[in-house]
Simulated scan of single mutants.
Amino acid sequence: MKVLSVVGARPQFIKCAPVSREIRKRHEEVLVHTGQHYDYLLSEVFFKDLGIPEPDYHLEIGSGSHGVQTGRMLAAIEEVIAKEEPGIVLVYGDTNSTLAGALAAAKMHVPVAHVEAGLRSFDRRMPEEVNRVLTDHVSDLLFCPTATAVQNLAAEGITRGVRLTGDVMVDALEENLALAKERSSWNLPRGGYYLATVHRAGNTDDPAALRAIMSAFSRLDGPVIFPVHPRTRKKLAEYGIVPAENVQVIEPLPYFDMLAALAGARAVLTDSGGVQKEAYILKVPCVTLRENTEWVETLEDSWNVLVGTDADRIVAAAARGCGGRHAARFGDGRAAERIATIISEYESENQ
C-alpha cells in the first residue's frame, strides 16, 4: 500500500523518524513536508540528524495566520493526494499541517490515520486543541499513546479504529539518547542550569505574559539556557524585553544537542507539550508555563507542575523541583512497529 505521510513541524519530524522506518519495511511511503517550520534549525537539520528520507514533496507553505496557512496547505496536499492516489494518509500530532492533511484526505475519501490521537487539554482557546479534535473525528485509524487518550476518545463517542500503541516519542528517545551523548557538542555540567522553551501564541503574543515569564527566569538561582524560537525572538524585540544576565539566549538547538541539554538540566521550563513528555521520560523535573496540559500523566507522578505565567509560581516551582515515582506510562518503545503492523492489517481487511 502507498502511505502518504504529512509532516511540517519539529515535533512531527521526531515522531516520523521511527514510524517512517517501520512503514518502509512493509509499504511504499510518500513523504510530504508542508514547510510549516522552515527555519534550518527547526526543519532541515532534523531530517539530517534523524536519518529521515528527503521529502518527496516540499510544499514551502511558510508562516501566516491559521486560516491562511491551513488553507494553503489544504489546497497543496489535495493536489498531492490526487497525483499519488495513496491508500491511506498518515498525520501526526496537532499542528495546522495535521489538520490540513486530515481534511484533504477525508474530503477525497482517503482513509486517515492519526498518530498521537486522543490527546485533550480541554481548552478550545488553543489552536492545537481544535486541530486534535477535528482530526480525530475524521480519522479511520487513531493511534493513541496512552490509556487516557483512549478514554478521551470514548467519551466523545469514538471507539472504531482506536488502537493503544504507546508513544512514538519513547521509540525516538530510546533510539537517539545514546547518539545524542556521543554526537552532541553540549558540554555544560549536569544539573548546573535550567533549560527553557517558550513558543505558544498564548505566551508570546501577550506582552504581559511574556514579561512575567522573563521576569521569573531572571529570578532563578542559576543560569537559564533559552533556545529561542524565531517568533519568540521577534516578540521579545517588539515588546522591548531584554533578558536578564543569567538568561543565555541562543538559537534553536539541533535535535541531539536539545536532547543532551534536556537530559542534563536541573529542570525544564516550557510551554511545549512534547518537551513535557520528553522531560518525564528522561526523569527531569518540568515546570509548565500553561494552566493545562494534554499530557496529564506527567502530573500524576509529580514530575510536572502547571504554573501558568505567574512569576512567583514559576520561581517557586523551579526551586521546589519535583519528581516522585516513575512509570512506563508512554509505552515500551515499540509504538512505531505497532503502527506499521496495524496499517498492514487495515490494508488486508479493506482490500
Rank of each mutant, 00 (worst) to 15 (best):
M1Q: 02
R10P: 07
A17R: 04
R21W: 01
R21T: 03
R24I: 07
H27D: 12
E28A: 09
L31Q: 01
G35S: 05
L42G: 09
D49K: 11
E54Q: 10
I61F: 05
G62P: 01
V68A: 14
G71R: 09
I77Q: 00
Y92W: 08
D94L: 00
N96I: 07
A100Y: 02
G101V: 11
L103G: 01
A104Y: 06
H109P: 02
V110P: 06
H114N: 06
V115P: 00
E116P: 10
F122G: 14
D123Y: 07
R124L: 15
L134Q: 05
H137T: 06
V138T: 06
V138L: 10
D140P: 01
F143Q: 12
C144G: 13
T148C: 02
A149L: 11
A155M: 12
G157M: 15
R160E: 15
L164F: 09
T165V: 15
M169P: 03
V170N: 01
E175G: 09
A178D: 12
P189D: 15
P189H: 13
Y193K: 10
V198I: 15
H199E: 12
D205N: 14
V228R: 13
R233S: 13
R233Q: 09
L236P: 06
E238S: 12
G240E: 11
N246E: 06
Y255R: 11
F256P: 01
A263Y: 05
V268A: 12
T270R: 05
G273N: 14
G273A: 13
K277A: 05
K277M: 12
L289K: 02
R290D: 04
V296C: 01
S302C: 07
S302E: 12
V305S: 04
G308R: 11
G308V: 11
D310S: 10
R313V: 04
I314P: 00
A317R: 00
G323Q: 10
G324M: 14
R334I: 08
A336P: 07
A340H: 04
E345V: 00
E347Q: 14
E349Q: 02
E349K: 08
